[in-house]
Amino acid sequence: MPEVVFTGPAGRIEGRYQPAKQKGAPIAIILHPHPQFGGTMNNQIVYNLYYDFVNRGFSVLRFNFRGVGRSQGAFDHGQGELSDAAAALDWAQAVNPDARACWIAGVSFGAWIGMQLLMRRPEVEGFISIAAMANRYDFSFLAPCPSSGLFVHGSEDRVAPVKDVVSVIEKVKTQKGVKLEHAVVEGANHFFDGKVDELMLAVDEYLDKRLGETEEAA
């Protein structure tokens, strides 16, 4: 799991990067929870997502947003962090010029950033949004949402209740050719304390289905 440092809009960004063994493999970018509430690239869910995509043959990058760990800069309420995520995708594409596709996975605050990046980058073909804070952040920019993906929530999430995410999904799920799916992990809170294994089962089930379809099409 090589440590990497690349240049972001606010200076140095530190990350962890695992290249795929196969040429032309897709890229996955993993985005961590809120920097001001202890979110880092070493978050347990981020770590699990990272290795899930590694084990599926992706070239995978997770990194610290500005002001976190050894990444330079200061928290910027989402705008700067979106620029950091774009810089991370640029870097991953530069070292993987043959990559045919990209996925984004984000947790909480990172899910909000990931969905905004998705709207700006047509090469993103899939996403995983975990504990998206639809009650705190405006997701109305998802109109239309350009790529299919999965929202996962805990049934006992008090920070970002399920009902707020469901209302977001219902507004955009009718877009042509795009399917937004929603999985609820019973008994899980916003941080999936004690429920990370169940969370990853839901993610794996979705990725098995989506990536299986891709392989069949190829």
Rank of each mutant, 00 (worst) to 15 (best):
A86P: 00
F127A: 03
A10M: 07
G39F: 05
A101V: 07
Q79D: 12
A85K: 02
G57Q: 05
F192T: 01
H34A: 13
H32M: 07
S140C: 09
D193M: 13
I30K: 00
P146A: 03
Y50P: 00
E205H: 14
R136T: 09
F65W: 04
A86V: 12
R120W: 09
V166D: 14
F75Q: 03
Q93F: 14
V60C: 11
A111M: 10
M133T: 11
F141S: 04
W112C: 05
T40I: 11
R62E: 00
D164P: 07
Q36R: 15
A92L: 10
G106S: 11
F191T: 02
E81G: 07
A218E: 13
P2E: 14
N189K: 08
R100F: 13
A92R: 00
T7H: 08
Y47T: 12
L118D: 00
F191S: 04
H153L: 13
L118R: 01
R56N: 09
V165K: 01
W91V: 00
A111E: 02
M115Q: 15
G67E: 02
L180V: 14
E81I: 08
Q72M: 13
I128R: 00
E216S: 11
P146V: 01
W103V: 11
M1Q: 10
D98H: 14
W112H: 08
G78E: 03
F63Y: 04
I29A: 01
A85Y: 02
A20G: 03
V54H: 12
V165C: 14
R120P: 09
E198R: 11
S108E: 11
E215M: 08
V4I: 15
G114M: 03
I128P: 01
F75V: 10
G73I: 03
A20K: 01
F37R: 14
F191R: 01
G69C: 04
A101T: 09
K173N: 13
E14W: 03
E123A: 13
Y51H: 15
C102N: 10
I45Y: 00
V46H: 02
F65T: 02
K163H: 14
A25L: 10
L31C: 09
G57W: 07
V107M: 15
L31T: 05
G110C: 09
V68P: 00
K171F: 05
N189I: 10
L82G: 08
M133K: 03
E125Q: 13
T214R: 09
A134H: 05
D204R: 15
R158M: 12
V5H: 08
E156T: 12
